[in-house]
Design a binder for these strands. Structure first.
Lengths: 367, 367
DNA sequence: AGACTCCCCGGAAACGTTTACAGCTATCGG
DNA sequence: CCGATAGCTGTAAACGTTTCCGGGGAGTCT
């Protein structure tokens, strides 16, 4: 039988041709039945039977080539080990999975070239869309984002006029919440352990800290500000440097990993938390609840931001003509043991301070 | 002009046809030049020029259909939030990326149906291979693994006769290391906080704990054994239950997340660590170093296991006829502050115990 | 009873790439 | 100076799927 094409590939795996031949129908009919569109009862039975007998599984690549979509969504974050990205990823994954797609995760290590290379490679159509949370943004970056061939949603700050779907929070305001809380509970010598200033979040948090101090009429003491990167080890080292030259009664940290490092440094240095030094982290990851004492932390709604970003992306994939949208998730402060104690100072607690217990088991209250 | 096929898809994105037409050569020549095989200097120049002008990027899907490989490797783990998997993933990612491939991460949540569904979907050829670290293994699972159409490597215990590439450690021995160390430093009322017994690691660690106690001639006290799951919250709750009915002088935990929960419970209950209760975790993740006091932990070489699994997988992708291989990574104990103190007991420390300081900054010594 | 509609089916094109094959030219050795 | 050979080029097939289109049969309405 000189059929026009092989029924069985050398591979041995069945294709739609195999099924069709076995069922005695055309590949078109077989395909229709397998996709559940059309087909007479008799044809359906034959095709289903044949497919089951040979163990047919459609080849997703061929299907993608035809349909021009892969069902893959990419997520690019700096550091997969940071719990804040884990939370974001979980939220994204939930949305993505519920749309029948799969998530492809990339760790960029914050290296900008890495990220632009990734964006350019996007052009090869391997994913239907991408969510990226860059911590540094260059012009190169922006143009790569703007003329990306596939939909992109950015989580994080972005130029106001960039025509890109964007979900952000206000980390300046987040820092302000932390400072307000500390001031309200009587702290005055408030230190700040930040990440790199050449990153978007680093710069925003620095500005937020300075503004908040000024608003409270507290003079800025550069001795009380220290910079590392957004990791645990750097946070610990930066806090050690800070403690070696200054004597804070409170510390704000630019994320929870830094805060955990700061806690370690404080305890090693023999400071009691919160009695001697109150500590507030940022991102409100599960890490904050795992520490002893549990860490107060400014929630930047990472799960919520992830969820919204995923929804924006799915909407854009469905309709590419949508105008660029921008959503904002407000920060909120979660007070736990690490900053719950009010200093025995001039001003009694009026804020959301908890009881000054050393062994609290409360899960924190949202300010 | 009546070319056989469209030069420009409605999409507007250039294909190899676009480039070929613009360069005035055939698509075969264009493809050859773009892949760097063959072509006269003149042709090369023209094609390169045309490709640059139209901004040609090859369509990875079409290429995959032709080459029967996607360049994607899947990794399926239970919980993406567990630092042990983060470490494993980093190691795998390094190997995978150095081979020019990309990593696709799946969180299974430990649900067995989820995992088998994933394995079956593998048949659709979307990935070139898969690394899976199941915590529960059923027969269904095994058959799905064995007749998977794409190469699979399993990280974790597996039936000895299963013809599947496999990288494992000996967590029974790992638990023994922890118990030996605690006994050597004078502990006798050693508790154990485990994960679910119907999981492979849970069962192995339970058996290891019982065997180790027996080997030391210490009677087994069921009051000192508690079970939750492999998460922080469960570890904390399980430890609270255990402390409510027994008075251990040491705790072995089935992983670091549990150990962190146990530490929290101990400190809330007012026990000093390590003076009152020594604590040893398992997996030796960065979390162990982040705690105060830093946690002793049994390293199961997760990064190493990940690296080796990735290498096995790449080898098998390159040559499917290799016989099934099995590699073993030995566990090792890293002693840190949480178990460094020797009890003022009958037996002076002969083991690898560190100084009984309360504020150690040592990064731990490997036993 | 004829025309119209509806449904089902099979052939073939299309997605964008790589590659086997054959034809052509130019070069080199004898 | 001619034949072999090497290198380049273009045509066309192939990867496995979905889908457009035209043909045909059965059923229904007028």
């Amino acid at each position: 039988m000189g059929r026009k094409r092989l029924q069985e590939p050398a591979d041995g795996r069945p294709t739609v041709h195999t099924v069709a031949a076995r069922a005695g129908v055309s590949i078109a009919s077989a395909s229709r039945v397998l996709n559940g569109v059309g087909g007479s009862p008799e044809t359906i039975r034959k095709v289903r039977e044949a497919a089951a007998e040979v163990g047919y599984v459609p080849n997703a690549i061929a299907r993608s080539l035809q349909s021009q979509r892969t069902g893959l969504i990419a997520l690019a974050v700096e550091d997969i080990g940071n719990p804040v990205y884990v939370e974001m990823m979980r939220a994204i994954e939930a949305v993505v999975a519920s749309s029948g797609r799969q998530l492809l995760v990339h760790a960029t290590g914050g290296r900008i070239d890495n990220e632009t290379a990734l964006l350019r490679r996007l052009a090869n159509r391997y994913v239907d869309g991408m969510i990226v949370s860059p911590i540094r943004v260059t012009n190169d970056h922006l143009t790569a984002l703007v003329d990306s061939p596939v939909p992109v949603v950015v989580v994080g700050q972005l130029d106001a006029d960039a025509p890109i779907d964007n979900v952000r929070t206000d980390s300046r305001h987040g820092v302000a919440l932390a400072v307000d809380h500390l001031v309200a509970t009587g702290r005055r010598r408030i230190g700040f352990v930040n990440g790199p200033l050449d990153t978007v979040p680093g710069a925003a948090r620095d500005a937020g800290f300075r503004a908040a101090l000024a608003r409270h009429g507290i003079g800025l003491d550069d001795e009380l500000i220290e910079v590392g990167d957004f990791q645990y080890a750097a946070g610990r080292a930066a806090t050690e440097r800070l403690l070696a030259r200054a004597d804070p009664d409170a510390l704000v940290c630019a994320n929870d990993l830094i805060a955990v490092g700061a806690l370690h440094a404080l305890l090693v240095a023999g400071r009691r938390v919160p009695q001697d030094v109150a500590l507030v982290g940022m991102d409100d990851t599960e890490l904050a609840r795992m520490m002893f004492p549990q860490l107060s932390s400014v929630s930047l709604g990472s799960a919520e931001r992830g969820r919204r970003a995923a929804e924006l992306l799915l909407q854009r994939i469905a309709d590419a003509t949508l105008p660029p949208r921008r959503e904002q998730v407000p920060p909120s402060l979660v007070v736990r043991a690490s900053s719950a104690a009010t200093l025995p100072g001039p001003r009694p607690a009026t804020g959301p301070a908890g009881p000054p217990t050393t062994h609290p088991s409360s899960e924190g209250v949202t300010a």
